[in-house]
Amino acid sequence: MHIFKSSMASMFALAFAMFGSSIFTAQAAPMSCTTSAGGSGATLTLSDATAAACFTGNDTNQIDNSFLLFGMTGWVLSDKNDGPDGDGTIDFVTGPTNGTKSGGWSIDTLAGLTKVVITLKAGNGFGAFLLDLTTPDPLSGTWASTKGLSHASIYYNGTPTIVPLPAGALLLITGLAGLGLAARRRNKRQPV
C-alpha cells in the first residue's frame, strides 16, 4: 500500500510539474506597442490581449474591410467611444475616456465572435489589441497611454451571432397576452 501511495504521489507531482503551472498561470498579460510618429508617438497598453500592433494615422480612417490586421482582412467597426460610429454589434459599456492616460474599459457582448480588437488612438498613431477571449472576464480590462487618448474603437472579424434578448421575448409574450385578454373582455360585453 505504501508503494501505491508513493507512486500516486510521484505521478501527481509529475502531472503538476508538466501541466499544473500552465493551468494556474494561464492569464493574458497586458500587451503594449509604440507608435513611430516621431515626437508625437505614444506607447499604448491594453490588458487581456493576445497580440498588439501599432500604426501611424487614425484607425477609423484606415481600418476597413481590406485592411490587413493580425493576418486578416474583413474588419468591421462596431463602436467608437466618442461617437455614433459603427454597426453596434459590440458596444462599449465603459469606454476609455478621451484626454486621459489610463483607465478601465468594458464591452457589452462578444456576439459569438472569436476575433475582437480594441484600438487606442493617441498622438499621431493608434494601437490595435486582439482581445484574449479565454480570460475569466473577456468583457473588461484596463488600458494605458503615454499621451492623452484621442479615442478608442471596437472592431470585429467574422459573422456575429444574434442572440434574442430574453426580456424582449417576455415583453412580447406579455403584450400578446394583454391583447388577447382585452379582446376576450370586449367580446363578453357585446350582446349577441
Rank of each mutant, 00 (worst) to 15 (best):
N187A: 15
S21H: 07
V192A: 14
P160K: 09
L171D: 01
A177M: 14
G86P: 12
I90K: 06
G95I: 05
T109Q: 14
G74D: 04
Q62G: 03
T100A: 00
F24Q: 04
L179F: 15
G38I: 06
P136D: 13
D59Y: 00
H151G: 01
C54W: 02
L110Y: 10
T60A: 00
S36V: 00
G71F: 13
G104D: 13
M11Y: 02
N124A: 13
G180I: 13
S40I: 03
I90S: 06
S150Q: 06
G104T: 14
G127Q: 01
L171K: 01
G104N: 14
F4Q: 08
G168I: 08
A49T: 04
A37R: 02
M18P: 00
L149S: 01
A144K: 15
F126K: 07
L149V: 03
M8A: 12
N81F: 02
D91L: 09
D79R: 02
N81E: 09
T25H: 01
I162P: 07
T146H: 05
F126Q: 02
A26Y: 05
G38A: 05
V76W: 08
F55G: 01
W75Y: 08
L120V: 06
I173T: 10
T97W: 01
A169V: 14
L68Y: 07
A122Q: 04
F16Q: 00
T25F: 05
T134E: 15
F70S: 08
K115M: 11
N61P: 00
I90H: 08
G57E: 13
G20A: 02
C54Y: 03
T97V: 12
L113C: 15
L172H: 10
S22K: 11
G41F: 03
D137Y: 12
T119I: 07
V76F: 05
S7K: 06
P191F: 10
F12Y: 15
M18S: 11
A15C: 10
T56S: 14
D91C: 04
G74S: 11
V76N: 08
D79P: 06
T35S: 04
T146I: 06
M11E: 03
S66P: 10
T142W: 04
M31I: 00
L44S: 02
L170F: 08
L131E: 10
S32W: 04
K115Q: 15
A152V: 00
L68H: 04
A15D: 11
I23S: 01
K147Q: 13
K147N: 08
T109R: 14
A167S: 08
L110F: 09
T25Y: 03
F92N: 06
S32T: 09
P138Y: 14
G74I: 07
L14M: 09
L77D: 04
P30G: 02
A49W: 03
V117C: 07
D132N: 15
K80R: 13
L130V: 05
G148S: 11
N187H: 15
G41H: 04
D91M: 02
T89F: 03
I162V: 15
G175N: 12
A167Y: 12
V116Q: 09
W105T: 01
L77Q: 07
A183T: 11
P30E: 05
A52Q: 00
G168Q: 11
T114N: 15
P166E: 12
L179S: 13
N187E: 15
A51K: 11
G168S: 12
V116T: 13
K101T: 08
G112C: 15
F12E: 08
K147C: 02
T45G: 05
A13V: 09
R184W: 12
T56L: 05
